Amino acid sequence: MKGVIVSLVAILAIIQLVVQPGQAITCGQVDEFLAPCIPYLTGEGEPSGACCSGVKAVQGMAQTAADKRACCSCVKAAANRYSNLKDDAAQTLPKKCGVSMDIPISRRVNCLIIN
C-alpha cells in the first residue's frame, strides 16, 4: 500500500513538472510516458508498472478537450510509427492498467471528435 501511495505521489509530481497550466501538451511528453508500453503493444507479455504509470500520467495530463485531442493525435502518430503494434493490445492497455482512458490508442481514430 505504501508503494502505491509513493508511486501516485511521484506521478502527480511528474505531471506538475511536465505540464504547467496554460502550456500545451507535446508529443515528446506523451511519447516519453508511453515508451515503456511498446513491448506490451508489440505483443511481448503484460504491461509493466512503468507502462501503467505512463498511461495514468497521460490520462492525468489530458484534462480539457483540447488536451485530449492533442494527446490523441500524439498517440495516433506514435501508433503509426510501429508497424508491428497489435491493435488488440492497444485496445486493452488502459483496462489492463486500471485506467478509464478518454484517449483511444489507435491508428485509425479521428482525434477531432474527442471531447
Rank of each mutant, 00 (worst) to 15 (best):
Met1Thr: 13
Lys2Asp: 12
Gly3Phe: 09
Val4Phe: 13
Val4Gln: 12
Ser7Pro: 00
Leu8Tyr: 11
Leu8Gly: 12
Leu8Lys: 13
Val9Tyr: 09
Val9Arg: 14
Ile14Pro: 00
Gln20Lys: 15
Pro21Lys: 07
Gln23Phe: 13
Gln23Ser: 15
Ala24Pro: 03
Thr26Gly: 13
Cys27Thr: 08
Gly28Pro: 06
Pro36His: 07
Cys37Trp: 01
Pro39Val: 04
Thr42Ile: 14
Thr42His: 09
Gly43Ile: 09
Gly43Phe: 07
Gly49Cys: 02
Cys52Gly: 11
Ser53Pro: 00
Ala57Lys: 04
Val58Ser: 01
Gln59Met: 09
Met61Asn: 06
Ala62Ile: 00
Ala65His: 04
Ala66Ile: 10
Lys68Cys: 06
Lys68Trp: 00
Arg69Met: 10
Ala70Asp: 04
Cys72Lys: 05
Ser73Asn: 14
Cys74Asp: 10
Val75Met: 06
Val75Arg: 01
Ala77Leu: 10
Asn84His: 11
Asn84Gln: 10
Asn84Cys: 05
Leu85Lys: 00
Asp88Ser: 15
Ala90Gln: 03
Gln91Lys: 15
Thr92Tyr: 01
Pro94Asp: 08
Lys95Val: 13
Lys95Gln: 15
Lys95Thr: 11
Lys96Val: 05
Val99Ile: 15
Val99Asn: 05
Ser100Phe: 06
Ser106Trp: 02
Ser106Asp: 10
Arg107Asp: 04
Arg108Leu: 07
Arg108Phe: 04
Ile113Cys: 03
Ile114Gln: 07
